[in-house]
């Protein structure tokens, strides 16, 4: 374990978007706070602070988590994917491109959570039904789109992935 106490703070090491990151944090700090304020990964958003909106979603060791409900110290020695890790230097992922093309976002604030949450779903289940997609995304609130174009963007992504 890399954990050690340094002047009241805990040293944490995690792999974030493929990169090893170390930080010192207070036990009370959430992973969301550390991602945003310590590591500069402001793509994860705080919408509710209690796990109801999904805007802060990241994938942690293969599991979708609400980072507002994860303490930063719990992230030690984990592997994390945030919205900033979805695109490659060659371009956007198919899912990201389809969100833009299909108007799957309006204000864009919930979008990082939807993208990460959908990736977590498709990683586990590459061919979900409409009902399975809606069920999975029920943890992500969008107030702008009515979800319709989000669903369409996801279904288009699934179809394109299957065709390739």
């Amino acid at each position: 374990m890399a954990t050690q106490i340094v002047s009241g703070k805990t040293a944490i090491t995690a792999t974030i978007n493929g990169e090893t990151r170390d930080w010192l944090c207070e036990p009370r700090q959430t992973l969301l706070e550390v991602l945003r304020d310590t590591l500069g990964l402001t793509g994860s958003k705080e919408g509710c602070s209690n796990g109801n909106c999904g805007a802060c979603n990241v994938i942690m060791d293969g599991r979708l988590v609400n980072t507002c409900c994860v303490l930063a110290v719990e992230a030690d020695e984990t592997e994390i994917t945030t919205v900033e890790g979805l695109a490659t230097p060659d371009g956007l992922s198919t899912l990201q491109a389809n969100f833009i093309e299909g108007a799957g976002l309006q204000c864009g604030f919930c979008t990082p959570g939807f993208l990460v949450s959908t990736k977590a779903l498709l990683d586990k289940n590459p061919n979900p039904t409409d009902e399975e997609i809606r069920w999975w995304l029920a943890g992500n609130l969008c107030r702008c789109t009515g979800y319709d174009k989000i669903l369409s963007a996801i279904k288009k992504t699934i179809a394109e992935t299957n065709a390739s």
Binding site: R36, T42, G43, K45, A87, I100, P112, L115
Partner: peptide, 15 residues
């Protein structure tokens, strides 16, 4: 503004 909003780069009020 689509690319900024699907990559987490867009700067909102708290960012």
């Amino acid at each position: 503004d689509g690319v900024d909003k699907v990559t987490g780069r867009a700067i909102y009020g708290a960012d």
